[in-house]
């Protein structure tokens, strides 16, 4: 029974996005991906939610600035398990063009485990969609179900 529920559950990933100091290019592309008819993430059962408590897949954009670091960590903690973290854009990976700045904290994966990286500046909506699909696979693995 619980195995069946788990299998069904990955088909309903709800997304939550955290902007950790991005130049909003990635955020605009996320909005585009999510909401415009051409890409339509709803066909994967995705939905953007307003509360971290409802989220399954968290999309993080931007180099993590000092001021956002604690807030990112706090929000990330509020997301119930099991959750999948997707880093969107080059910034959370390495700081991108902003690397070496005094105002940045650490790369995201020093702070929290990142499951999927979607590089790009900003990534194309198609790349973000692929990131979400990959996140579903990782979610399955976290639930202990084989892909298939």
């Amino acid at each position: 029974m619980s195995n069946l529920l788990n299998k069904l559950s990955v088909r309903s990933p709800w997304l939550f996005r955290i902007n950790a100091g991005s130049c909003n290019g990635c955020d605009v592309e996320l909005a585009t991906t999510a909401l415009i008819p051409r890409f339509d993430v709803e066909r994967f059962g995705c939905r953007y939610c307003g509360s971290p408590r409802h989220a399954d897949v968290v999309l993080i954009t931007g180099p993590v600035t000092l001021k956002m670091r604690d807030k990112v960590l706090k929000l990330w903690d509020e997301i119930p398990n099991p959750k999948v973290t997707v880093a969107v854009g080059i910034c959370p990976i390495s700081g991108g063009v902003f690397r070496d700045s005094y105002s940045l904290a650490e790369p995201l994966d020093h702070l929290i485990p990142v499951d999927v990286n979607v590089p790009g500046c900003p990534p194309r909506p198609q790349a973000i969609l692929e990131g979400v699909v990959l996140a579903k696979k990782i979610w399955m693995r976290k639930l202990g179900i084989e892909e298939g």
């Binding site: 100091g21 130049c23 290019g25 600035t65 001021k67 005094y102 105002s103 940045l104």
Partner: peptide, 28 residues
């Protein structure tokens, strides 16, 4: 929250590198 210290970065990069940097002040 989005203060990335870009002006300090701009003073450490040359005028060609800065063209890429300032383009990422804001994507819109």
């Amino acid at each position: 929250h989005v203060h990335r210290g870009m002006e300090a970065l701009a003073m450490r990069r040359n005028i060609f590198q800065n063209a890429t940097l300032v383009e990422r002040v804001c994507s819109l």
